[in-house]
Design a protein around this nucleic acid. Structure first.
Length: 482
RNA sequence: GGCCACGUGGCGGAGUGGUUACGCGCCGGUCUGCAAAACCGUUUACUCGGGUUCGAUUCCCGACGUGGCCUCCA
């Protein structure tokens, strides 16, 4: 079984064959660092982390290069900086915003069990590469200067009639359709409604750099050029996989393809284009006005969603319960179910010693089929069931979970719901004396008293489970009720 | 309006031209002072209408529905 991936451009699942197996190259569009990342942002981060892990397994840890950019130049950043640090010069306030947001982003995705990409380049550190690409596009006749802007012309690209792809091929639409659908308020400096900005002049106070194409005034890059620049710098003119959310297909990725292929005279920018489906929250598009907007930080660290904090492993597993190309409806019920699965599996796998870091074969064959993570979850449920009669299956389950990044062998009490390390809810000092009193009452068969204590605990939000230890002595465990 | 994706049992969610997905829930049982938990077992499906086919949930066409993109967006 070989890795098969669905390619957005050709609309088919194909065997994956890297251009250079000793150097597998993947680029994924990363965050614009102006605010906390939300749970929708988490989806591609998790999905492509799974792919990164799989590629590392298949080709070797040192033979996969994963680049995820950090966009640190953007109007939203400027606005946020001016709002949050009105007293500071814009340069400084922008740096504060981007550094702080980047740190927060890393805290969040670390908690989601994601490995760090090989390189996380910043847009502002690649202005030189952007200028080079823009100059080449102007020289090649694909872009032009107007009013201190540099504009890319999809029309010129399609007229070139060479190895270049057709503009619109990725998003599967024609230039004519786009012209028909274009807004009436086309900027006056554009020759054509479909032309898009590669470079624009900076207003006073805005971040600015030396402009390309002989433009005298200082300027700043358009939105799409950074990814062409950074993927070129770190991965080369063409590479294997380019990923991101499906909403990026047009215009962002379409324009990246145009820029890169025209600058380098290549047929394809990436061999495989991968896009994850959209996320909704409780059946509706996530938006602040609907009150269903959740940041990763809120889910992890505040009781904002379903009055619960959610462990990063739970968030990650719940994200993997749907295939990455399918839309996903993010609900409390989904998280509760993921948490239950995770607890069952940890109960089984806890304490086993993985014999290697290899994922089980039955998991690999499923995952290699275009990242069929729901299938992987079914495999894990199967291992969990087999583990009742087979210690080897428990060990396999341990390896499977490690490989998928949903557990690393630790005791995670906030998954189990024990209150004492969560910081709120009843503490073990309040609960355990009552448990002991109930055990004593049961021992003297005072069931009226033992039931009364159970009711009292229930009122505190504590659920209890009676069992027996290995000597047959009654043992009661407890957890925060859900 | 244009383009695209999706529509599976109470819920979540894979997959397949003819054979059990899987998980949760429900129900029954074992266990338990009683519950809960755990364990064992059972149950329900492929939006609608045409077509292709020996046979379609799976392919084709149409309808309806949901969502996405077309403007910043994962």
């Amino acid at each position: 079984m070989a890795l098969r991936l669905y390619d957005t451009l050709t609309k088919e699942k194909r065997d994956f064959a890297p251009l250079d197996p000793s150097r597998v190259r993947m680029y994924v569009c990363g965050p614009t660092v102006y605010d906390f990342a939300h749970i929708g942002n988490a989806r591609p981060v998790i999905v492509f982390d799974v792919l990164f892990r799989l590629l590392r397994h298949l080709y070797g840890e040192n033979h996969v290069k994963y680049v995820r950019n950090i966009t640190d130049v953007d109007d939203k950043i400027n606005d946020r900086a001016a709002r949050d640090y009105p007293g500071l010069p814009l340069n400084e306030s922008i740096r504060k915003v981007t550094e702080q947001t980047e740190r927060q982003f890393h805290d969040d995705v670390d908690a989601l069990g994601c490995l760090r990409p090989t390189v996380q380049p910043r847009a502002t550190e690649h202005i030189g590469e952007m200028r080079t690409i823009i100059d080449r596009l102007v020289e090649g006749g694909f872009a032009y200067v107007a009013d201190d802007h540099v504009l890319f012309s999809p029309g010129a690209m399609n007229a070139a009639n060479s190895v270049l792809p057709r503009y619109g091929a990725l998003a599967n639409r024609s230039l004519d359709e786009m012209i028909a659908g274009a807004r009436v308020d086309v900027a006056p400096y554009k020759r054509d409604a479909t032309d898009f900005v590669l470079w624009k002049p900076s207003k006073p106070g805005e971040p600015s750099w030396q402009s390309p194409a002989g433009i005298a005034t200082q300027g700043r890059p358009g939105w799409h050029i950074e990814c062409s620049a950074m993927s070129w710098k770190h991965l080369g003119e063409t590479f294997d996989i380019h990923g991101g959310g499906i909403d990026l297909v047009f215009p962002h990725h379409e324009n990246e393809v145009a820029q890169s292929c025209c600058a380098f005279h290549t047929e394809r920018m990436a061999q495989t284009w991968m896009h994850n489906g959209f996320l909704q929250v409780e059946g509706e598009k996530m938006s602040k006005s609907l009150g269903n907007f959740f940041t990763i930080d809120q889910l992890l660290r505040q009781r904002s969603f379903g009055s619960n904090k959610w462990h990063g492993y739970v968030l990650r597993l719940s994200m993997l319960t749907a295939h990455y190309r399918q839309p996903i409806d993010w609900t409390i019920e989904r998280l509760v179910e993921a948490r239950k699965s995770l607890r069952d599996w940890i109960d089984t796998a806890y304490g086993t010693e993985p014999q290697s870091l290899e994922p089980p074969d039955e998991l690999l064959s499923v995952l290699e089929d275009d990242l069929n993570t729901p299938g992987v979850i079914a495999v894990m449920h199967g291992l969990n069931k087999e583990a009742r009669n087979s210690p080897e299956s428990a060990e396999k389950l341990h390896r499977a979970m490690k490989f998928m990044g949903i557990w690393n062998g630790e005791r995670t009490d906030d998954i189990y719901g024990y209150g004492y390390d969560v910081g709120d809810g009843p503490s073990r000092h309040e609960v355990e004396p009552l448990i002991e009193a109930r055990t004593a009452a049961r021992a003297r068969k005072d069931f009226k008293e033992s039931d009364r204590i159970r009711d009292e605990l229930a009122a505190m939000g504590i659920a209890i489970k009676d069992g027996k230890d290995s000597d047959g002595k009654p043992v009661t465990t407890w957890e925060i009720a859900r």
